[in-house]
């Protein structure tokens, strides 16, 4: 690069600096920003209108009533199903006793217990989970 080029570059730098020197926001930028922030702060601090509060309360009450109703229906269904199950088992008690005796005779009581225990635990687990109870919490795990 010769001296003429260097001089041209220096001149270009000066012109570019001058060209961009005035590049700034309009006067009053801070005041406009302060007004914007104050407006946002006021919006945040403003309490909800009474009508909105009442609407939210009504929606909350409706949702609570719906959950209560659903829980009652589910409880009733479970009770009916449980009663039906007990009655069915009651009807089959002689046959079940006969089957149990035959199985015990052929395989031994330990094998029956070995098979029935996991089944009982799984059943219990499913019932507890259904009522949002964590079985691990019951045994302290």
């Amino acid at each position: 690069m010769n001296a003429e080029d260097t001089e041209a570059m220096r001149s270009l730098d000066i012109r570019l600096r001058r060209l961009h020197a005035g590049l700034d926001a309009r006067p009053g930028f801070e005041d406009r920003l302060a007004a914007r922030v104050a407006d946002l702060r006021a919006q945040r601090a403003r309490p909800l209108p009474t009508e909105a509060v009442h609407r939210i309360e009504r929606e909350y009450e409706r949702a609570r009533a719906r959950f209560d109703r659903d829980a009652k229906v589910e409880g009733l269904l479970l009770a009916v199903a449980g009663l039906g199950g007990v009655l069915a088992v009651w009807q089959l008690v002689p046959e079940l006793a006969h089957l149990l005796a035959a199985a015990t005779h052929s395989t031994g009581p330990a094998a029956i217990a070995f098979g029935a225990l996991p089944l009982a635990v799984a059943l219990m687990w499913a019932v507890l989970r259904r009522f949002d109870v964590d079985p691990r919490a019951l045994v302290g795990a």
Binding site: A25, R26, F29, R32, L33, R36, V37, L40
Partner: peptide, 9 residues
């Protein structure tokens, strides 16, 4: 300028 204000907010 709008963007600069928005950024500060």
């Amino acid at each position: 300028e709008d963007v600069a204000q928005e950024v500060f907010v």
